[in-house]
Design a protein around this nucleic acid. Sequence first.
DNA 1: AGTGAGGCCTGAAAGC
DNA 2: TGCTTTCAGGCCTCAC
Length: 274
Amino acid sequence: MPELPEVETIKNAVQKSIANANISKVEVFCNKLRIKIPENFSTQVLGAKIVDYKRIGKYIVIALDNQKSIIIHLGMSGKIKIFETQPELIKHDHVVFYTSNGVVVYNDPRRFGLIDICESKELFNKVYFAKMGIDPFDKKLTQQYLFEKINNKRIDIKTALLDQSIINGIGNIYASEILYLSKILPTRNCDKISLEECKALVDNARIVLNQAIEKGGSTLRDYQKPDGSLGYFQNMHCVYNKTGQKCPKCNCNEAIVKIVQKGRSSFYCPTKQK
DNA sequence: AGTGAGGCCTGAAAGC
DNA sequence: TGCTTTCAGGCCTCAC
């Protein structure tokens, strides 16, 4: 379940592994991802040199020296694998990039991810980015911004945190974690969230995501397996998937509760969070 | 316009 | 044991 920290970690790992490589060959075995991979995708990247790596929200953007950018989203089950030489391909290996510095494989069983390409200068006109909210680490994300964005909404705060057009990069797992640290119930309506609580949400979003990125970086070193897998590391979650376990951060002795909001599970401590 | 439900998709886990 | 059902979640489309 790649959220911002996982995407950031994977982007960094790919950058470190193949850096400014030349793309010598691309194989597309399945183009039916969430968005169909363009028919001429291979020819557009063939022979190009990679000049930049970015994370935009939960997307990885790889800029090429031919003024085009590759856009990758991992959806729910997407993985990136890196090999030094020709790997043995397995089920759901949909796209393989052969470069001068190694082989990068995109594997996605559920095919909720996507791979696309566009002119670099048109990047922010793409539907993926056009309506995207502020990155959690962007200085422009302030308590005032959040407050003004959610203040008149009639949705739960948990749902608002998942709305990528407000803040981008937060997914279902970290939404619960951020609310837990902020002592706010996931079911609280947005119009009942104070400016002060918006500050807590912004601060805790940065704390939680930063910790996960650091953990991801360190976990990845130990995690790199012979199969080249850059899968998902286990994070230190306080409440996510901890139903029935004791609230870890205080002495309330309360058990973590699971509920479903808009078809997504939320986890919280009924004593700590109000 | 804002909001919520449904759907995409597969594999693991739970249920029978 | 082996089959069927449920669940997981990012994000888009559709309907109210």
